[in-house]
Design a protein around this nucleic acid. Sequence first.
DNA 1: CTAGGGTTAG
Length: 584
Amino acid sequence: MFLTNLTTHNRISTLLHAVSSCRSLWHCQAIHAIVIKSRFINDGFIGDRLVSLYSNLGSSDYAHKLFDEIPEKDLVSWNSFISGFSKRGILDFCLDAFGRMRNMADLKPNEVTLISVVSACTVDGALYEGRCIHGFGVKMGFMGEVKVVNALINMYGKLGMLDAAYVLFNGMRTRSLVSWNSILAVHAQHGASNEVMGLFISMRRVGVKPDQATMVALLQGCTELGIAKQARVVHACIFKCGFEGDMLVWTSLMSLYAKSGELNAAEIVFGELKDPDAVAWTSIVASYAMHGCGSEAIMLFEDMIDSGNRPDHVTLTHLLNACSHGGLVSEGRKYFEDMSRVYGVHPRIDHYSCMVDLLGRAGLMEDAIRLIRSMPMEPNAGVWGALLGACRIHNNVELGKEAAENLFMLNSSDHRNYIMLSNIYSASGQWKDASKIRSLMKGRHLVGNPGYSLIEHGNRVYQFTVGDQSHPDSDKIYAKLEEIVKKIDEAGLARQTEFILHDVAEEIKLDMINKHSEKLALAFGLLVTTTSMPITIIKNLRICGDCHSVMKVVSLIEKRIIIVRDSKRFHHFANGICSCKDYW
DNA sequence: CTAGGGTTAG
């Protein structure tokens, strides 16, 4: 055994090291047994480490039991206990222990305790608890501690209270690099790209040197926009700051290029990684999946396996997604079966969603519903949503109704489900049912996010909303749009007005659909670019069905390449066809 | 000298 012939001090530090290196519950228990045999079980250091390890590994029973067995619990014992639950995101246990600690006469929580408890409040719906802890921190005089404020910035930011986070950040007398990174990260995570850029510039101005986390936040801040030019600017910035080849930063950059429509650039960035890790491989598989290149994604996945990297549940999700977007049914089925047997990844609910999507899109409704019934867990909104989407494509009213009813039960506030069901009814001519669903939606006061489309030109990004007239050259844009519509009518394309929900006359519907944001962006793109340039449009919602067919026709009659990123994936239009093969 | 704490990728 490795513990013989060592001095007492060395044995304790060896044990501490062994305890720290545990990666599984089984491993932890084995080391625990050695600790018991080694008569050091009462050593406070080792006990604390075991406690935090057990709670870190999610075994709260062991953690509680062991914690109770520690004879003299000091501040560090309590902090280890609490931090373990904090890292696992188990808020209840954290607050419980914090409460018990506050009731102790001879022990007071310190700033370390507070940081752990604040971090635990970053889970959804814990704003009230977070505010209480914040108040406690103020009372205890911890607000001068940079790390406490950083944790609070992160907490408010993660819970969507960007203003509160900014007020705290702004009020800091001294800010560490982590303070800057935290405020950047929470803005980036909420798509506040302008703020991210502004903060980054201020940070440089006061002479703070960015690190890996800064660059990642900067890159993340650009994804919402998805503008290739901005990706290139940040890429240059990464070079200047000396982060080229950094795995974390480069994976993030690769993903940004892919999301900005530049699959080639993503491929190049990936190629520059000497020894890509599992996350980098997953990212490139996801990139191809996003662009609808199913077989390429599969090939890359096989390369990943050959390189000795192990896929995890995220990799498999993207792989199944790739099969689904590419309509590769048999491949998807094979990988779904292989995932636990060959790769040791047990299917989670997201994998079931992917499979329902895959089968449903392919029109294999029986198989999709059979899979749902056989799931070992309760189907969630993702699963029913996938089925509903498939019913929309294949006009399956019966199943669509069932899927929608389940969705309404799970989450009645997502207006997209109502629209989808209403569209299914309209498509099969059941107008009364369709309008019933619409009034149900209206009655519940459900409105969606307003749709918008972005397009880059010169050094600017232009934004269009439905019927937008804010552009200075609005007249020209609408004239171009009219010209396109005329050509399309001449080409004999049947327009799809059922995507308009309002109860209005057909010609008004057509007028409304003609002013969709993606069509305005398209008209603008045709106006300002030359024929050799692809037109790239970023849409915040899913592309509308009519716009999708119009893009196809325009790509043919105007001989243009049009690339649209919607909220789910990319569509590459050329010669009258879309890369999604109308599978979307 | 030594335990516990804040930001970061797919």
